[in-house]
């Protein structure tokens, strides 16, 4: 489970066909850019979750 949590943001970050588009824009920012920017804090949350369930030797 810990490994699954860690791999999810990694897979999303390189799954280019998923986010290689202009629409939907957010406050004028194309999807390509805001998706990747939002994914950064999301990856932190996944690591935090992994550390919660992983124990000391996570």
């Amino acid at each position: 489970m810990k490994y699954v949590l860690l791999i999810i943001p990694c897979v999303l970050s390189v799954w280019v066909p998923l986010y290689n588009s202009i629409e939907p824009t957010l406050a004028g920012i194309p999807f390509f850019f805001w998706f990747l920017l939002v994914l950064i804090p999301v990856s932190s949350i996944f690591m935090w979750a992994a550390s919660r369930i992983g124990g000391d030797d996570a």
Binding site: L6, S13, V14, L36, L37, I40, S43, M47, A50, S51
Partner: peptide, 14 residues
């Protein structure tokens, strides 16, 4: 550079 830096930290974490 953004996916690059997203990939780094789960790797570092492990």
């Amino acid at each position: 550079a953004v996916p690059y830096t997203i990939l780094i930290y789960p790797f570092v974490f492990l």
